[in-house]
Design a protein around this nucleic acid. Sequence first.
DNA 1: CGCAAATTTGAGAGCATTCAACTCCTGTGG
DNA 2: CCACAGGAGTTGAATGCTCTCAAATTTGCG
Lengths: 252, 252
Amino acid sequence: MTAVIPFGELKRACGNCSLRELCLPYGIGESDLRRLEQLVQRHAPVARGKQLFLQGDPLRSIFAIRTGSVKSVTVGEDGAEQITGFHFPGELVGFDAIAADVHDCSVVALEDTSVCEIPFDRLDELSGCVPGLRRQLMRLLSREIQQDQQMLLLLGKKGSEARMAAFLLSLSSRFVGRGLSASRFHLSMSRGEIANYLGLAMETISRLLARFQQDGLITVDGREVALLDLPRLHVVADMGSDGGGFTRRREG
Amino acid sequence: MTAVIPFGELKRACGNCSLRELCLPYGIGESDLRRLEQLVQRHAPVARGKQLFLQGDPLRSIFAIRTGSVKSVTVGEDGAEQITGFHFPGELVGFDAIAADVHDCSVVALEDTSVCEIPFDRLDELSGCVPGLRRQLMRLLSREIQQDQQMLLLLGKKGSEARMAAFLLSLSSRFVGRGLSASRFHLSMSRGEIANYLGLAMETISRLLARFQQDGLITVDGREVALLDLPRLHVVADMGSDGGGFTRRREG
DNA sequence: CGCAAATTTGAGAGCATTCAACTCCTGTGG
DNA sequence: CCACAGGAGTTGAATGCTCTCAAATTTGCG
């Protein structure tokens, strides 16, 4: 991996960071904040396609995304790869490793990405002293559980259209939280990666985007997307898997 | 909900509990164990079909399953229900609520079930003092993330046969950890609930179980199941979604 | 400018669903 | 004791959504 730059070179980085509301330091005091900052290490940016860590690596650190974006990928015993999430500035990755002290997914940069590295044992120690930090850590872990379960609902009960709409809306709402446009953004992942994430074929993604555009829901130009009709997108996202506006029955 | 029985009436329950290796007290000392025990409340058993808590309820407590089994269910905005997990003795439920202080799934008993209730704020406090407890809590949260992500892989990349096989093997391995038979057990959930959980139709579950039996993989009699060929079940569970032993391509 | 990768588009095939009928099991009431 | 209602589960047939295969087209980049 790339060389670690001592964090002292940055003046009170967490305190000044525009992402602190989303990240670990949320809700902790000035002095505790400084103690957290001493833990944090900064890396030279990670190049597109390079990994933060690999599935099977021992847990050393948690990473916070500063700029750019990453995907986390799990490969099953049979070699099938599943993208379990995309992560954007302010989000943390590596939580899956706490259970067994080993990462069970790889995290790969989708574009040039800068991250903060936080040694986990030090973070664990500090969280013992700082209740606010401990709660925020738990909140972030819990939020990941929530998100995964929303995803289970999506994959288990929704058809391709609803999945695509939900995906676009999820990106939108996450970008809004970072002060970006809710209706116009750049996709840092390929069609194939979206397909993998949503449990669909790449060709299906292509067709869905085309159909959404025809229907006036969105505009697509390569990886540039504009959401034209948020309300209707929400309707589509809430649809059952039959795509006709009625919920497909799957249980007795 | 049912009346709470003061836990003092039970002699050192966590310490004597056969599930302590799986549960919260794992890896903490004698004196800390006693402090944990003082937190724990015991309920009268929860009847089949009754709920521990409902989606939308504020977070009050985490629950540990002592005997019986439960399902957790999330309902989407459109009313579609997704079972996000089944839980057995020694497992904890309620972690999803930490993020927003509100449960985003309901937990319902599949059979008469006894549980331990642990007030979350007290647990949070105590975990600040007891590093071992804090780590175990984090491990349990992290394990849930891992499991959900395994499930994402299953729903995203695997066909019906692989899902069914993986489901049976998952039950098997969890029962083994509790000293039960790995190859012979009772299903506490209906076909419809399995179907919902696996993102399939009830009829498909029925057909799969029949086919597995024909193929000599298992024996089914109502809700009694025996796994006859663990190795081959593992092969089936690792198969891609085409069911032919080759991985279906879903990404470029 | 030209190759390689990513994306789009078209056509046919397959797995799982939906619809529907039937069996089995259980509990209830006459 | 038996008829009956209701739920759970099974089985069969047909439809369809999404996949796979294939080829054209565009984009990215050296």
